[in-house]
């Protein structure tokens, strides 16, 4: 610990010492070190017992960790996560704007949507979309109550397990995202809207250019969490065999009965993906924190790596200037 000497000469001399002799001693956290040591010991014990457990069959884990079947599942899981989040955020933003609109019809529709999709279990929704073909044999687009149809197809051919999974996850996400986006929009000072309006900007332009970019600062952290949740929730679509990571894992252990090792394989991959997702999340938070004091805060990890949010932000600005913005 560094001992700092204060150079304040206004302090009253105590015990015959002058102010210059006084020394500042930072608080020492002995308890913190003891707790850290104890936790580390427990962790080492746990990992050791797992590693040495023959029932875990690490050979099976190793055999399947990089198997083609697993990579196929990973690919599906990833695109399903991405597509469901895009659908959820886009539709969620629309619903948030509808809920904030002065039209009672739009407000009612949006509220009804959120009520339905938040009020029923996701698992039920997934199975529903998986079996929706039982409800409507054909999908048609035309003018109701006439014979005019522009498009007609068998529901089964359109609503493949992957599409059903996407719909279920995306629509469910939209309900949650809409609440996050709504909170974000409401966090933006009304003075911003007024300033934009006074410049002649229309409501839609004001929303897109002024309100939403500022709302993003509030929206990004919870949406990052939603993405991480989504990645894990895709495992639920194994109930309609959408060929995601979990579906394929289940297919394997249905045959070889190695449930625990296969679950370890799945967990390792989910963990790896969730960890990777933290990187774009941190970037987005910095991007939308521009122009705020929070952008200058430095996390312990950033301090460890030597970079600071402050330099990143200044770098951003320089780049913007160079790009002629």
């Amino acid at each position: 610990m560094v001992e700092l000497k204060t150079s304040r000469d206004t302090a009253a001399p105590a015990h015959g010492l002058t102010a210059d002799d006084l020394v500042v001693v930072p608080v020492r956290n002995h308890g913190r070190w003891v707790a850290a040591a104890a936790s580390l010991a427990a962790l080492v014990g746990l990992v050791g017992s797992l590693a040495g457990n023959d029932n875990l069959r690490w050979d099976i884990v190793g055999q399947y960790l990089f198997a083609d079947l697993i990579f196929d599942g990973l690919f599906t899981t990833l695109w399903l996560t991405a597509a469901a989040m895009v659908l959820g955020l886009a539709l969620g933003t629309l619903i948030a704007v509808m809920r904030l609109s002065s039209s009672p019809v739009l407000y009612g529709l949006a509220t009804f949507f959120v009520w339905i999709f938040r009020g029923t279990p996701l698992l039920v929704q997934i199975i529903f979309w998986g079996y929706a073909a039982a409800l409507y044999k054909y999908v048609m687009i035309g003018i109701p109550f006439t014979d005019i149809t522009f498009f007609r197809a068998e529901t089964n051919s359109l609503l493949t397990p992957a599409v059903a999974a996407l719909l279920a996850l995306g629509l469910n996400e939209a309900a949650y995202a809409s609440e996050i986006v709504r909170a974000g929009i409401q966090s933006v000072d009304t003075g911003q809207t007024e300033a934009a309006h006074s410049l002649g900007m229309r409501p839609a332009l004001t929303m897109r250019r002024i309100v939403l970019p500022q709302a993003m600062r509030v929206i990004t952290p919870p949406m990052g969490n939603e993405t991480i949740n989504m990645l894990k929730m895709t495992a639920l679509v194994s109930v309609i065999s959408a060929h995601d990571l979990m579906s394929n894992i289940q297919d394997v252990y249905a045959q070889n009965y190695q449930v625990i090792p296969m679950l370890v394989v799945a967990s390792l991959w989910y963990l790896a993906l969730v960890t990777l997702l933290g990187i774009p999340q941190a970037w987005l938070e910095r991007r939308y924190g521009r122009g705020t004091a929070q952008a200058q805060q430095v996390s312990p990890l950033q301090r460890l790596l030597g970079g600071t949010a402050r330099t990143a932000r200044v770098g951003n600005r320089v780049m913007n200037k160079e790009a002629g913005r």
Partner: peptide, 14 residues
Amino acid sequence: GMVFQRFNLFPHMT
């Protein structure tokens, strides 16, 4: 044009 008491500049823009 309008100028406000609390400026209301767009904080996310230079």
